[in-house]
């Protein structure tokens, strides 16, 4: 059964009096125990998808969706209070900038203890509860690989290094024993060892606790080895989603192919001194979105038909939205 099921999620932002679709009909299905990768270049709306899921968006933005359910419960029609409750108990988010997503005036220990759910405490007496909280927090910190928990707990966010901070964020995400962890580019700006530690940690959590992980990143190399399923986002539109292996082997959308090509280690037959492939141009700003398929101006296969938004097509478990997919002519 799918945990999170999003169909045609649209997010509109008011820019200087004009409503712009920052997210245009996003589809996303996350199943239990699965690592799902959400990939796209910066500015493609990855973080917005997450904010829309957890409801941390300004009230004046408009969110609409045909379907947005969490284990059968509709998230959009739910009251804010209930939604918070669901998110508190079932979904945890690890943010991009670990440092700026921690309150600078509270110690790490205080912040971690604050979110230990009441349900995990057995005792009724507050001083025993405090002890229990300490114990839970300590075990968690050890589990994510922070050895000196005492020092960590009494530090302020600005006092610790970035990768420790990210580990701490993972501990924070695990404390409520969620069903789904959303990791928003957790390895950004880290050096390789710290990065691999974080990735290992996440995949171990996935294997041991049967947790689903929604892994958001633009780093294909990091993701490809651990993710089971991948959704590619471009400029607020889902262009392709499917099984990770399938996608790697036989991408149907030109954008996915370009993304894969831009990471040289995916191409085994790359001769020396050959130019790196990349799409021309840059991702358009929200004020100047092209009509139809938003990849249009940059797409090598674009034709006149591309000014119409392509419908989602399906081949088995492989979804893509393109008028002229790759490998199409051969069929």
């Amino acid at each position: 059964m799918s945990l999170l099921d999003i169909k045609n999620l649209t997010l509109e932002i008011d820019i200087a009096g004009e409503w712009v679709k920052a997210l245009d009909k996003i589809n996303l299905v996350i199943n239990e125990g699965q690592i799902h990768a959400l990939v796209g270049e910066s500015g493609s709306g990855k973080s917005l998808v997450i904010k829309a899921i957890v409801g941390a968006i300004p009230q004046r933005w408009r969110v609409t969706a045909d379907r947005m359910t969490w284990r059968g419960q509709d998230l959009l029609t739910m009251s804010i209070k209930n939604r918070r409750k669901v998110i508190r108990s079932d979904i945890s988010v690890i943010f991009q900038n670990p440092k700026s997503s921690l309150d600078p005036l509270l110690t790490l220990g205080e912040q971690l203890k604050e979110i230990v759910p009441e349900a995990r405490l057995e005792s009724r007496l507050f001083w025993r509860r405090e002890k229990e909280r300490e114990k839970i927090v300590m075990e968690l910190l050890h589990r994510v690989g922070i050895k000196d928990h005492k020092l960590c707990m009494k530090s302020y966010p600005h006092q610790i290094s970035n990768d420790v901070c990210q580990k701490f964020m993972i501990a924070m995400a695990l404390v409520s024993e969620p069903k789904l962890i959303i990791a928003d580019d957790p390895t950004r700006g880290m050096e390789v060892t710290a990065k691999s530690q974080i990735l290992k940690l996440l995949s171990r959590v996935n294997q041991v606790r049967k947790l689903s992980v929604l892994f958001v990143s633009h780093d294909l190399l990091a993701i490809s080895s651990m993710a089971h399923y991948m959704t590619v986002l471009y400029c607020g539109q889902t262009v392709e989603s499917g099984d990770m292996l399938q996608l790697k082997k036989r991408a149907l959308h030109p954008y996915t192919q370009a993304l894969l090509d831009s990471a040289p280690s995916f191409r085994k037959d790359l001769p020396p001194k050959s130019p790196l492939s990349s799409l021309d141009g840059t991702i358009p700003t929200l004020q100047h979105l092209p009509i139809g398929c938003r990849l249009g101006p940059r797409c090598p296969r674009a034709r006149r038909e591309c000014v119409v938004v392509p419908a989602v097509r399906r081949v088995h478990q492989h979804y893509y939205s393109c008028h002229f997919p790759l490998h199409w002519d051969k069929k």
Binding site: G55, A56, F95, N97, S101
Partner: peptide, 17 residues
């Protein structure tokens, strides 16, 4: 509007907290 308040919201804390 700062990141940590948004993060606290996303962690599911109540508005009062």
């Amino acid at each position: 509007n700062s990141d940590y308040v948004q993060a606290a919201v996303a962690r599911g804390l109540t508005s009062r907290q």
